[in-house]
Design a binder for these strands. Structure first.
Lengths: 187, 187
DNA sequence: GTGGAAACGGAGATCGTCTCCGCTTAGCTC
DNA sequence: GAGCTAAGCGGAGACGATCTCCGTTTCCAC
């Protein structure tokens, strides 16, 4: 279904080009960029872009997906490098920096969360796994309360990101409050 | 500047109609409604709508404004009715319900926060005052930590709202975590 | 090389936002 | 209540973005 056929060489190349152009363009102009502009930049016609990515959200989801993958991977690395509580806290901030770095992508992704596209569902489960792993360890170490689940964490981080998009300097501070709320009540 | 002239009777009426239609339509279809649809519903031409509200954001801001006012007012009422800590918590949930009830308005408002339109600035200061008042009392009563300011509170609530737009059932739970993060460390 | 499927790409259909301007009407004046 | 004037109306249409359709080009299996 996902990989019916090997995809022709030129198609593969063009697809790659569009994704690169999209990543660049979103980073520069935020989510309001036009898709035709992306196509132009990638050196393909709009038709080609839409062949590969039926609509704006699919493109966004696909670009976002590779980012998510790297984020999940770095989560795993943190788990090996730091003690549980710190790994968890660092990962939260990492997500943060990550989403912040991509102007507008956060909002776009959020809007898309509601649509439940397959790519997005896959992303979510990737993230949930990464979050779940770090979270579980932190909980076992007694750094995070037990009644929190991965979804809670993801949503909370996302919420802070969205809410501080227009005031990035508050982000760290707010994330700190949230983290405090996730810690177990002191004995 | 705001009230140069008394505004002709028909103009006032139309303005009111558009606002009513806008409120209804946003509530029904979320933020994606077209302005022409609102105009149609209000029984005026698009030209008229745009005369009163130069663009989408202005309309949104104006509709939102009256909501904010009522919210601030209810905040004040809560302050008289309940002990400080509870009044504060209740107000948070109130904002919550309020924003949730208006599908999509939350997102729209957020996007607009960045633009700093005069109406929005006024809203923000209204909210800040209401939040500040309740917050200060709660802090004095020792229910909320001292290093939190009204802006923090507003952003956090807003963040949770945005993050749970696609999963309303999580809202209460997440807000609970956030509230816990705002409480003073136990002795 | 050739046949045919896969992919391209751009012209243009469609839809939403917002503007322009000729027409209508409220509301003052006598 | 008739006339005047400026405030206000409203819809046709300019503009710009998304997405589609289909004739043309390119790949690649034979």
């Amino acid at each position: 279904m996902t990989t019916d056929r090997p995809l022709r060489a030129d198609a593969r190349r063009n697809r790659e080009r569009v994704m690169t152009a999209a990543r660049e363009t979103f980073a520069e102009h935020g989510e309001k960029t036009t898709l035709d502009e992306i196509a132009r930049r990638a050196g393909v016609g709009p038709g080609t872009l839409y062949r590969h990515f039926p609509d704006r959200e699919t493109l966004l989801a696909t670009v976002y997906r590779t980012d998510i993958e790297s984020l999940a991977q770095r989560g795993r690395a943190l788990g090996d490098e730091y003690p549980p509580g710190e790994a968890f806290a660092r990962w939260l901030r990492l997500q943060f920096d990550h989403i912040k770095a991509k102007r507008g992508v956060g909002t776009a992704v959020k809007r898309m969360l509601g649509t439940g596209s397959p790519t997005m569902l896959e992303c979510k489960s990737l993230m949930r796994d990464a979050a779940g792993d770090l979270l579980e360890r932190a909980q076992e170490a007694g750094d995070i309360r037990k009644d929190v689940d991965p979804d809670d964490v993801l949503r909370l981080v996302h919420g802070v990101v969205l809410a501080t998009e227009t005031a990035p300097e508050m982000a760290d501070r707010l994330l700190g409050f949230v983290l405090d709320g996730l810690r177990p009540p002191q004995t």
